[in-house]
Design a protein around this nucleic acid. Structure first.
Ligand SMILES: [Mg+2]
Length: 463
DNA sequence: TCTGGGGTCCTAGGACCC
DNA sequence: TCTGGGGTCCTAGGACCC
């Protein structure tokens, strides 16, 4: 796989500057991650077709074990289709919390190799090993060592691509994976190293659809140009590709096809948005149902914002009709928020306006979503709380003890917790995100007399 | 076949400012 | 006075990824 001759290929230069072969990017990708975790938890499932995903009428496959893939099942496939292909499959709802726990431990294994780890999802990461010494033998050994440790410690298989750039490393890890050949699973090599000299030979024969960033739409447009392989794209001039795909995508795809990819491995990518959405078993037709769902989605988003210590200034809703037509509406607020009541209120307003415009309830609503964008750390915000328009639900009061029992809920003015729906835990959450840890049990706050009428309070305890 | 949920990035037009 | 242009913010939609 890694033999072959380099032929006059443009490269992105010496970003890595390390190792004779310049391979310093690893892409690690767990094999059938969710399904494999489930097999670990229930060993009787080993060797059997396992599908993780929505078991409801509108579910899709999130992950399929290799024995299931033999039947032609793939992820993102509707569960109903998957079960038609493979009726004996075991279908599991999935347990995100446990996948996250496994993921955290796996990422720690990667960080033992290098601190330069960029997680892409729960089961994938890029590693920059240029400072961990990445001579060819060493990079290959690092990759093999990672696979061994992940298997020994977690009992899970992964595939690793090693290359000079993210894009090639990503495609190499794909190529390292087990494959379905006829009716059988053929184990993959597990690690594939593509040296700088071998990049062209590796990339050129691959179908355009294999590229990271080329989906069905882009592939269709390119095939109208008579393009089938990555090599075909590389041979076009960049302007031709741009004319076909637009400036952004066109330049990018043309560069990738020529092995040019300057994107660095980024360790701390800030969160850009937090969202929650839900597809209903039966389309919603009543505005009471819609409002109740929006409140619950807003609540979930708000609580995750607080947990992450973030505020949002732009709230969006997403509405998918029975016809699958999908619309979004968004508002940018005068001030950022993490309050569930405020997010719910603006979400409901946006829906009401949308319904007035488009009569969406008549079509039936298949999905609703609420998203928070334009995020900023809560520490960067003025510490104010909206006063409640009504008494707090759940009876949260100042002086009440915290869930840990270590102290009392801080000295808050009655009514200031009006945005809290869930009782003490949520209250402490809100308080912590707005006032910091010290506010719990020890902090003091007071109502600024001049702010009382504007409905805000301020702590005396600001950092 | 009948299409999840959680994300990222890009485009394009209009408003507004310089 | 007219015209052009660029930058930024906001909104809606779209493509893609796992
Ligand atoms: Mg995977």
């Amino acid at each position: 796989m890694v033999n072959g001759r380099f032929f006059g290929f443009m490269t992105s230069g010496s970003r890595t500057g390390s190792g004779d072969h310049g391979v310093s990017v690893l892409h690690v990708d767990m094999d059938a991650f969710f399904a494999s975790v489930e097999v670990l938890r229930r060993p009787s499932l080993r060797g059997r077709p396992v599908l993780v995903g929505g078991a409801g009428p509108r579910g899709v496959v999130a992950a399929a074990s290799y024995p299931a893939r033999v039947f032609g099942v793939r992820s993102a496939m509707p569960m109903s289709t998957a079960l038609r292909l493979c009726p004996e499959a075991v279908v599991l709802d999935g347990d995100h919390a446990s996948y996250r726990a496994v993921s955290t431990r796996i990422m720690e294994i990667f960080r033992d190799v290098t601190p330069a780890v960029e997680p892409l999802s729960l089961d994938e990461a890029f590693l920059d090993v240029s400072s961990a010494r990445s001579l060819l033998g060493e990079a290959e050994e690092l990759a093999a060592g990672i696979r061994r440790r992940v298997l020994e410690q977690e009992g899970l298989h992964c595939s690793v691509g090693v290359a000079r750039t993210k894009h090639v490393a990503k495609l190499a890890s794909d190529a390292a994976k087990p494959r379905i050949v006829g009716r059988r699973v053929k184990p993959g090599p597990g690690v594939i190293v593509v040296t700088a000299d071998d990049e062209a030979d590796f990339l050129r024969p691959l179908p355009i659809r294999a590229m990271w960033g080329v989906g069905p739409k882009t592939a269709e447009k390119l095939s109208r140009l008579g393009v089938a392989t990555i090599g075909d794209i590389a041979d076009l001039d960049s302007d031709t590709v741009v004319a076909c795909l637009g400036e952004g995508v066109g330049r990018h795809i043309h560069a990738l096809a020529n092995g040019i990819d300057d994107r660095p491995v980024e360790v701390d990518r800030p969160t850009k948005s937090i969202s929650q959405e839900s597809t209903f078993p039966i389309d919603l037709v009543g505005s009471d149902d819609v409002n109740a769902q929006l409140v619950s989605l807003a609540d979930g988003v708000a609580s995750r914002l607080r947990q992450a210590g973030l505020y949002s200034r732009t709230i969006s809703i997403k509405v998918r009709l029975g016809s699958f037509e999908t619309m979004t509406r968004s508002v940018t607020l005068p001030a950022a928020t993490a309050g569930s009541r405020e997010i719910a209120a603006v979400s409901k307003e946006m829906f009401t306006r949308l319904h007035a415009d488009r009569d969406v309830l008549t079509a039936g609503i298949r999905l609703l979503g609420v998203a928070a964008g334009a995020l900023t750390p809560s520490s960067s915000h003025q510490l104010t709380l909206d006063l409640a328009p009504e008494p707090p639900v759940g009876g949260v009061k100042s002086g009440m003890s915290t869930p840990s029992g270590s102290g009392s809920v801080f000295d808050v003015v009655d009514g200031a917790l009006g945005e809290i729906d869930d009782g003490v835990d949520d209250a402490v959450d809100v308080i912590r995100s707005k006032f910091g840890d010290r506010a719990i049990g020890r902090g003091k706050s007071r109502v600024r007399p001049d702010a009382r009428d504007q409905g805000s309070i301020e702590t005396s305890d600001r950092p």
